[in-house]
Nucleic acid binder design. Structure first.
Lengths: 217, 217
DNA sequence: TAGATTGTTAATCGATTAACAATC
DNA sequence: TAGATTGTTAATCGATTAACAATC
């Protein structure tokens, strides 16, 4: 029953396969070879086959992959075949943006509550979901069996609240704050989205591209 | 004048170094060794020294690194020592969240305009920035020398508008739409933030952690 | 000077690509 | 059966870590 650990690089690519297969599905494409898919996605066919074979043989020699089947299998691997109870902590613009993003619910991520420290927001609703005060968090998490919390609040609040969330049962944190939340127990999943760091990568690449062009002259 | 190409992995780590150094700076720490920093950041000291030495020798034997100097140098490398003119295309929740995020302007990313296809938003303002209609984009980009466009609108709109942005002078796209914008000229920088893919990685890891725990029983 | 710590070379590790036998 | 394409092993490539001479 040995299961080799799957590398992070592979996990990161799975959602992208899932997206492309979803598109093919919409276009009513029934089957696809690793070679065709590799051209669409701009990766090597070898990498696709290696990646998929981490999880089992989903293809058929001489035929390729059945799009619908592979789409569902990857969805299952990613854990999209079940539902999750989720909260959003921080009801600012970004928190509200996430709350309004209906597609998450389609994928099984149910937003059960939105929380903030600002008493002026108390009782307001976003897409029918009430904004509550953060002191209600422990009770709410336990009562509603919340597994996932999105943190869309400043660093200090995130660092303060994260341990409380975890103590009360939160298993995974989708972290938008400018911190790595390193103090949490290591069985807690932290998936961070650092928007400003993404923008810095963009500016690095932009400057680098400009330098390259200057050098060509 | 040979410059070896810096790997993507290194570029991705730079903003994180920058963030930690910024924190140290706030705490008035003057110098730090690669070893101390490595413990804070949970990486190897060797990696830090290798990463930095891609860009030059910023340290001093027997002393370590001067925090302020290194912070500024990494900022310079990332292109944070200049200003950029930026627009946001898509005035939904996410677009407004970005527009309201004041810290971007502190780093030199100036938001010059917000655009949408929805005529009902016309003339409204977000943090003093007027929402304009997308047919004004070509003129506006040229008039305001826009280099960066954040795309916070659905896939179809993003794919339709991106080439128009580029034609009129946009050099880099910060892409939040569910597409890779592969059709663009290869000298255009595309930095994508795929939120739903991030959430899928989270759910993979959450399920995987649960499976691991079950196995331990 | 002695101690500390970098910058850099060498060794190791892991991930990607290539090749091809297996098989539909 | 012949052709196509996978699954998988082997080869290559690149990134990370270890080691240590250089030097502050």
């Amino acid at each position: 029953m040995e299961e080799r650990e799957i590398s992070k690089a592979v996990i990161k690519r799975l959602p992208r396969y899932y997206r492309y297969l979803g598109n093919l599905l919409e276009e009513k494409v029934e089957r696809i070879s690793s070679n065709e898919l590799s051209e669409m996605m701009n990766v090597t066919a070898s990498q696709i086959r290696q990646d998929l074979n981490n999880f089992g043989g989903f293809g058929q020699q001489g035929y390729g992959y059945n799009v619908k089947y592979l789409y569902n299998e990857i969805g299952r691997i990613l854990g999209l075949d079940r539902v999750y109870n989720m909260i959003i902590v921080g009801a600012g613009n970004l928190g509200q943006a996430l709350a309004n993003y209906v597609k998450f619910e389609k994928r099984g991520f149910w937003i059960k509550g939105i929380f903030d420290v600002n008493p002026r927001l108390k009782g307001m609703t976003v897409r029918g979901i009430e904004i509550r005060m953060t002191d209600e968090l422990p009770q709410f998490i336990r009562d509603n069996q919340i597994q996932i919390a999105a943190l869309t609040l400043p660093k200090s609040g995130a660092e303060e609240l994260a341990p409380i969330l975890v103590e009360n049962g939160v298993k995974a944190i989708w972290n938008f704050a400018h911190t790595d939340l390193q103090q949490l127990p290591k069985d807690v999943i932290v998936e961070s989205v650092h928007l400003s760091e993404s923008l810095m990568q963009l500016s690095y690449n932009l400057n680098h591209m400009e330098l390259e062009k200057e050098r060509e002259l």
